[in-house]
Amino acid sequence: MTQEGAQQAPVNFWGEHPATEAEYYASHGAEGESSYFTPPGASPRRLFTRAWRPAAAGGTPPRALVFMVHGYGNDISWTFQSTAVFLARSGFACFAADLPGHGRSHGLRAFVPALEPAVADLLAFFRSVKQREEHAGLPCFLFGESMGGAICLLIHLRTPPGEWTGAVLVAPMCRISDRIRPPWPLPQILTLVARFAPTLPIVPTADLIEKSVKVPAKRLVSARNPMRYNGRPRLGTVTELLRATDELGARLGEVSVPFLVVHGSADEVTDPAVSRALYEAAASKDKTLKMYDGMLHSMLFGEPDENIERVRGDILAWLNERCTPAATS
């Protein structure tokens, strides 16, 4: 490798020190592992999965399980881990999988022609974790960022009431923002062309890192993610996201799971107005919406550290309140 190549080679998202993931986890009071999961009857599809838990040296079992879903083009092995490690050191066992076509999971990069199989695969993985003996009786939360928030809502809408203790939705993609949605009649044209060439990466879009990450130095870190998809969106993926978010937009009133939505008021990738619409329309008796003035889409990595700590603190407080048994008289 040339000197220039060495300077450009990806490093860990937290920097050069500590040198390994295990050391990074340990320095934050957590431990982790990775593996592959093959959904029943789904061969040869495989999902790359990760788990983050409170460090065993602490001797305290996890307070709850948090099942996490990343956003479009992203994966679970780069900056996404920072939130999982934070939750693990705070007493939660976290589990996540790279979506099909993302990260180290099976499939053409960033090609999601149908969300239903992805939802089914994730649900199979999540349920396999929930069924482990050591997890019996623990509260179970969904956690989704951006497109992952939409997938969490789809999982909720396709599972029995009461299966989930709650859901944390971070800038959820309940509808693609008009600011990045292709203007009419381009969606209709794309849908037609996608029938014949769904994998073509030709859909024009804004630079998502530029629009998502506020801190310039953190943009560089995000861009160095070796597993991130940086090409143009594929036709089949875009038409499927348009279809799925249209479905969600029409079904907001059916959402009944307890939830917390956190969203930045300056988000230009997902629409804060739709998070407000979700809060107003949802049938959930326990629902909370927190809007953060001036924050962009990447609320848990791309903002100044003090903003990240504020959002993390609100998420942790919400989870803690729903893990603490109600006082009895």
Rank of each mutant, 00 (worst) to 15 (best):
L87G: 08
L87D: 01
A88W: 09
A88T: 02
R89G: 13
S90M: 13
F92P: 00
F92N: 07
A96S: 05
D98E: 06
L99T: 03
L99K: 05
P100E: 07
P100Q: 08
P100D: 15
G101D: 01
H102Y: 04
H102D: 10
G103P: 00
G103N: 11
G103S: 07
G103K: 12
S105R: 08
S105V: 05
S105G: 14
L108E: 06
R109H: 08
R109E: 14
A110Q: 05
F111Y: 12
F111H: 07
V112M: 09
V112Y: 06
A114V: 05
L115K: 01
L115T: 10
E116I: 05
E116H: 13
P117T: 12
A118E: 00
V119I: 15
L122S: 05
L123K: 08
L123H: 06
L123M: 07
L123G: 04
L123N: 08
L123D: 15
A124D: 08
F126Y: 12
R127N: 12
S128P: 00
V129G: 06
V129P: 01
K130F: 11
K130C: 12
Q131E: 15
R132S: 15
R132K: 05
R132L: 15
R132M: 15
R132C: 15
E134K: 08
E134D: 15
G137E: 11
G137N: 06
G137P: 07
P139L: 14
P139T: 02
C140V: 15
C140M: 01
F141P: 05
F141M: 06
L142V: 11
L142I: 03
F143T: 02
G144D: 03
E145P: 11
E145Q: 14
E145W: 04
E145L: 14
S146W: 06
M147H: 03
M147E: 02
G149D: 11
G149V: 08
A150G: 04
A150W: 04
I151K: 12
C152G: 00
C152N: 04
L154H: 02
L154V: 09
I155N: 11
H156R: 13
H156D: 09
T159A: 15
P160T: 14
P161R: 13
G162L: 03
E163A: 12
T165G: 09
A167S: 14
V168N: 09
L169N: 01
V170T: 07
V170C: 08
V170R: 07
A171W: 01
M173T: 10
R175E: 11
R175L: 14
R175N: 10
R175D: 06
I176A: 05
D178K: 13
R179V: 08
R179F: 02
I180L: 13
